[in-house]
Amino acid sequence: MSSLELMPDPAALRRSVEISNLIKEYPNPYGEDFRVVENFNLNIREGEFISLIGHSGCGKSTVLTMLAGLNEISGGGIIVGNKEIDSPGPDRAVVFQSPCLMPWMNSFQNVMLGVKNVYPHATKAERRQIVEHSLAVVGLADSMKKYPAEMSGGMQQRVGIARAIALQPKVLLLDEPFGRLDSLTRMELQDVIIEILAREKLTAMIVTHDVDEAVFMADRCVMMSNGPKAGVGEILGIDFARPRNREVVYQDPKFFEYREHLLAFLEQRAHLKSSTRVFSDGDTMGYTDKKGLELESHATSKATSVA
């Protein structure tokens, strides 16, 4: 009886995300508004892990920040749980590319920052426990009193992840969270995230440039078409059992198939772009194209090192 009373409304616990006909336009002072994203449709099931890849500048961060509520939506809508979102909130935690820690706070205080708001009725000791637990989960139980300046980039990003999960969000949003880390740290943190998601049953979306990462971590891999007016190009279901073991997955022939598929998609888009470049805005395209090639070469070099 009492346990039933404590159970929140099941609808409020729903963690699915529905993105329908999402549009994003940036104002352009010299002409028509610049429509970056158009007709972006995606349904994410509860507890599903989506990876979002695409060429640089196609609008991945734009989609993710709109989902986070940090970026205004120009058209269409996003429903998280059963509520349409219109502002940022702790139900959708974000891990940014740079850890974005407050340099004047130690790890504990950085994580505590949001906890106070999310658990207004918790006692001091309970809050403390939540923070300590989150830090322990990311492997920082010993570094609670450390300031960002005293920690490596990987450790700082761990604090960023701890801060996100301490909010007990419904959705975890990661924008190139490991972009600035070396590959060993990157793998460690990938495992940390996968573990957390499995335990907390969170819905998650990760934006990444690393094809291996996209395949290894996600349940479905969403490939965005090139901007402007980018949308969902193709969706690839990744069919590995969880919990996933890196050695096993990397040996699996399916892994290479998925990788090749994603690379082929990106390459094809790159060619498409270079042929359409003549007709569109030269500058933006030239820039993204360069970055796009970088993504490919990065992925290839990774492939050789793994193979």
């Binding site: 509520g69 940090l70 940022p88 702790p90 959708r92 940014f96 920052l113």
Partner: peptide
């Protein structure tokens, strides 16, 4: 942005 996500008053 962090403050907005954390919904700090």
């Amino acid at each position: 942005n962090v403050a907005r996500v954390l919904k700090l008053g």
